[in-house]
Design a binder for these strands. Structure first.
Lengths: 218, 218
DNA sequence: CCCAACACGGCACTCAGTTCCAGATCAGGT
DNA sequence: ACCTGATCTGGAACTGAGTGCCGTGTTGGG
């Protein structure tokens, strides 16, 4: 029974590098679980798919599922953390003399490639997210997590602005606001792109939107 | 037992106007339920408070609770719908010649009064929201609901912009992006204000932030 | 080669949320 | 004053998410 659990996962040898075997298999199981779950979600819908079914389809018990994901939502949203990480990284590697707004726009390119590479998949994922209130909400929350990781980079680019309100309180909300505005542009572009069935190139829509909203201070 | 349920609510006569008695009591029960729940949440924490306890404290059964609120989260977040409504209303009543950004800033005043009137309460609510991931997520989602209700007003103010991307696809993401940016400013200001223990006047922080992020197009 | 660390299944539990039911209540018209 | 249908009520039974625990089997790595 145990042999079936690990054997059914079909994890090939030769993948993974410096990490111990234990960690490697762990990641492989996670990936397998995500794949299987996504298939079920696509076929039956998110709500109609139980964790029991996902676990069974992956050849493991319900208990074990929770050793890999803390919640059902995480199976869908986990990869967003990695996306946020790469976004922060992309932003960090923009030239130092670039203004904050342009740097953000260019960093967003990292996210756009997913939509360009697999528009149908991105669309399907998006529709699934929109279909479930809790899922949609958590998705938004994850994006706010991106927010926080970008703050230091943007704060550095904005310089120590002469903020009248911050002078006496230490408050500086500007970086957060700029990032939030940029993310709002990204979100608006994605929604519009989706509403139009991916007809227009997403990067062009984003370009237009961010040109319109670009803060006058830059 | 039944008499106890309705009698324990302490709803006095003379409140409510054109609505039928049925609807009046319904609203009173909802309000009572919210008050009682908030007290329990403040005392024991959101997660540690069960629906059973809330219902009992309000003199009714668990079943009846669900006739007034679809979920535990709604007890906390329900009032946000009303807030969004008043925000849209405030925006609609701004002078027609005012630019979109300024109109949004002024409309936000409707929301700020809550924080000015009861900073401690707003702070406590905020901290409770931040303490629970699901709650925080749903809160964000509600604010996105505001988003949609503001779109028509802002679209009108922006005018039929010559959007190169919209020419061939009908896409116009600009209003959404502008609203999103403004809401991001509001959020950033609130967070900064909270992080600083309400030391700086919130409206001043918001003024500064929205001046910084104000799109150059206006 | 061994053993501590880990993964596993299974069980029992709490709680949110849904769906039924039968009985009590009440507004409004006769 | 008395129906009557709509509405509200508590209660019971159910599903599914998420948690905690335990005994057992497996294996990576020293």
């Amino acid at each position: 029974m145990m042999a079936e659990a690990s054997g059914g996962l079909g994890l090939g040898p030769g993948l993974g590098l410096g990490l111990g075997l234990r960690e490697r298999t762990r990641r492989a199981v996670r990936a397998e679980l995500m794949t299987v779950a996504m298939e079920l979600f696509a076929r039956k819908g998110y709500d109609a798919t139980t964790i029991e079914e996902i676990a069974a389809a992956a050849g493991m018990s319900r208990s074990s599922f929770f050793r890999y994901f803390a919640s059902k939502e995480d199976v869908v949203l986990d990869h967003l953390d990695a996306l946020g990480e790469s976004l922060a990284e992309a932003l960090a590697q923009r030239p130092a003399d670039e203004d904050a707004w342009t740097a953000l726009r260019r960093a967003f390119d990292v996210l756009l490639v997913c939509h360009v590479r697999d528009p149908q998949g991105a669309l399907a994922l998006r529709q699934m997210l929109d279909g479930n209130p809790a899922l949609r909400a958590r998705n938004l929350e994850k994006q706010c997590g991106w927010h926080d990781r970008l703050i230091p980079h943007i704060a550095a680019r904005l310089g120590s602005a002469p903020d009248p309100a911050s002078a006496d309180t230490g408050i500086n909300a500007r970086p957060e606001a700029v990032i939030g505005a940029a993310l709002a542009c990204l979100e608006a572009a994605k929604r519009a792109w989706m509403a139009a069935d991916c007809r227009a190139p997403l990067d062009k829509v984003l370009d237009d939107v961010m040109r319109t909203v670009r803060p006058g201070a830059f």
